[in-house]
Design a protein around this nucleic acid. Structure first.
Length: 623
RNA sequence: GGGCGUGUGGCCUAGUGGACAGGGCGAGAGGUUCCUAACCUCUCGAUCCCGGGUUCGAAUCCCGGCACGCCCGCCA
């Protein structure tokens, strides 16, 4: 079983706190989760408890309760298929077993269970009025869906692209997935820090520093964009070209210079460090601006050289050499790792460290400072990640605290993207194009707009940004990271389909209704004054059920490190809201119904706003 | 060659043991004197890559193929 699955299961366990049997009927104490508005999770715990008790009473095994979420057209919020498994043991057909189990459960013992009924081989659990009531009350909170603080420090490392030039879309999944993942963990109650690990110690950087010092601006082509990393990457490209195709003697001299920079870095030489920093800091500041457009921001940029300069790498090397798995072959120190064919070289024959060595020191630092560490990285780094994991456990670390989220490249129809060769599409260009297309779309729609709210130029620009960038993020975050993506403009920037604007529009609609209500002097009622009794349409109920699931979705997404489940949720949510919108007029309803529906709209707004915020997609108030 | 990952209507995608595989794009037909039509309703369209196996039950688990991607550096 993969580590992710294991973690998921452990975290996914509902908290059960059974009261003393002396009280009488078996009951379930809804403590924190009740207060925090986690109705769905509480109901799930109740179902578990109910099944457990019923099966025990019937003298049946309780290892596997078969709890699942039924298909859409079933009224139940949860169901159990346990009757299938017990049919043989009982000697009765599954529907009979299901009926017996349902008979054994008295929903009156539970707060959120309304009706328990057999349906064929299933035992279905329908929610009580209290379930809906608790949901609508809880969702009046603006932060609805945020889980209790877990008092656990997590570092999410993502992007960490080498500072060689503009960010291109080949790697764009990294900041988008990483940022969303950090958001999800934060919303799920973890204390999150976002790190960018800067590879400032390798050959690439030495080449870059040399090229920057060697070539003259006048020999370079015009930069593609007026920002520093576009300016700088020209040196890098020209330098690489020279090393590949330049006159042999000059190339040799250049290589000697590059080697000396690398040696200097390794020895902690201040001059070498500064020469490289000059380049790294410039390029990085530009990349930071690009990523900021997504927006993806970082708490810390952790430089690789730091672990050379503070002695951590030397210290680590000494400990690695002591391991039983350490071998000295062909003048280099290596690790012969179990279950991994390829040896991991950690000290070159010239005595210098490698990227992998420094990354190990980096990870030990993470272990010292955080409870958990999550890294988002491309699938091409998978072997390296396994080596890091295995080596850390040989060093005595608990690598259950370490999780890697792997994503596969975005490729172009014609092949790979490369900064060095300058092939590929810059993320800046993608975002610009997205905004341009969104702006056109907004302008086209201005004419046949029904709503009379006069969008001005600033609104058009704001919407173009929210929709354009949102569409790019949503397109990427909504897919499972392991699936390969081939970049196509039309597909990435399709505003119809299941895209950001579709779900953003729902948020805008909730804001529209609440705004009109306020103008008409209708207040969203205080939670204590709410009564779900006035919500008797199936569409309103279905929407509330979906609202109720939100905290559970956050929990699942965080536990499995899968932000895309939140995106999937927003889509279902949008469908439910649109059905409610169609069937349940708010402002024209009788006062009591209107108030209750206003509260539903407020609940929907909070839910959608928070879901979008987790995904890093803007929630427009109008569009 | 070995390891890992992916394979779901023409295209994209959700779903990792349980209720007729859920959406979207596309094609076609409708819907707005009514809180935003970036919306909704209906129709068309699936050998869940192939073949075995486990199971009462498989898109999901196991074995064997096939296709595609990634990796297998004293690079990062």
């Amino acid at each position: 079983m993969s580590r992710r699955a294991r973690v998921g299961r452990r975290r996914g366990q509902p908290r059960l706190t059974a009261l003393s049997p002396a009280v009488g009927a078996t009951r379930y104490a809804y403590t924190r989760s009740h207060r925090r508005g986690r109705m769905f999770l509480s109901a799930r715990a109740e179902v578990e408890d109910a099944l457990q008790s019923a099966l025990s009473a019937l003298d049946l095994p309780t290892e596997d309760l078969g709890i699942e979420e039924p298909p859409e057209d079933v009224d139940a919020i949860l169901a159990s298929s346990v009757a299938y498994r017990l049919a043989g043991e009982v000697g009765a057909p599954p529907p009979k077993v299901a009926a017996d189990i349902a008979d054994e459960i008295d929903p009156a013992d539970y707060e959120y269970l309304g009706t328990v009924q057999p349906q064929g081989p299933y035992v279905n659990f329908l929610p009580s009025e209290a379930y809906f009531q608790a949901t609508i009350e809880a969702a009046q909170r603006e932060e609805y869906g945020r889980l209790d603080s877990k008092d656990e420090r997590v570092v999410v490392e993502h992007t960490s692209a080498n500072p060689t030039g503009p960010v291109h879309v080949g790697r764009a999944r990294n900041p988008i997935i990483g940022d969303a993942l950090a958001n999800v963990l934060d919303f799920a109650g973890y204390d999150v820090e976002r790190h960018y690990y800067v590879n400032d110690a390798g050959r690439q950087m030495a080449v870059f520093a040399w090229a920057y010092e060697t070539f003259d601006e006048s020999d370079l082509p015009e930069p593609e964009r007026d920002r520093i990393e576009y300016d700088m990457v020209r040196y890098y490209r020209v330098g690489n070209e020279f090393l590949e195709e330049g006159p042999e003697e000059e190339v040799e001299a250049a290589e000697a210079e590059i080697q000396s920079i690398m040696q200097g870095l390794e020895e902690g030489d201040e001059d070498a460090y500064e020469r490289v920093s000059e380049v790294v800091d410039k390029v990085l500041s530009g990349m930071k601006q690009c990523l900021g457009r997504l927006p993806a921001e970082f708490d810390e940029f952790v430089k690789e050289t730091r672990f050379i300069r503070d002695g951590a790498t030397d210290d680590l090397v000494a400990r690695l050499q002591e391991l039983d798995e350490a071998v000295y072959e062909e003048d280099a120190w290596q690790l012969d790792l179990p279950d991994i064919e390829k040896n991991l070289v950690f000290l070159r024959s010239d005595g210098t460290s490698l990227y992998a060595t420094r990354d190990l020191a980096h990870h030990e630092w993470k272990f010292d400072n955080f409870d958990r560490a999550v890294t988002v990285l491309g699938e091409d780094h998978k072997l390296q990640a396994q080596q890091v994991d295995t080596t850390l456990s040989l060093l005595g670390h608990d690598t259950d605290q370490l999780d890697q989220v792997l994503y596969s490249y975005v490729n172009l129809p014609e092949g790979k993207m490369s900064t060095r060769r300058g092939t590929g599409i810059d993320l800046d260009d993608l975002l610009d194009e997205a905004i341009d297309r969104a702006r056109e779309e907004v302008e086209d729609r201005l004419d046949d707009r029904l709503r009379n709210d006069e969008l001005d130029d600033d609104d058009v620009e704001r919407i173009a940004h929210q929709v354009g960038i949102g569409a790019v993020r949503y397109d990427i975050v909504s897919k499972q990271p392991t699936k390969a993506i081939t970049f196509e403009w039309e597909r990435a920037l399709d505003f119809e389909a299941q895209s950001a604007p579709y779900v953003q529009y729902v948020h805008a609609r909730t804001c529209g209704i609440l705004g009109e209500a306020a103008d008409a002097g209708y207040e969203v009622p205080d939670p204590s004054a709410l009564d779900v009794e006035h919500l008797n349409t199936p569409e309103a109920r279905a929407l509330l059920r979906t609202v109720a699931r939100f905290p559970g979705v956050i929990e699942e997404s965080a536990a499995d490190h899968q932000p895309h489940v939140v995106a999937t949720y927003t889509r279902t949510f949008a469908e439910r809201f649109n059905a409610f919108y169609r069937e349940c007029p708010v402002l024209d309803a009788d006062e009591e119904v209107r108030d209750a529906r206003l509260a539903v709209v407020a609940a929907a707004r909070h839910t959608m706003a928070n879901a979008l915020s987790v995904l890093g997609v803007a929630a427009p108030e109008s569009m």
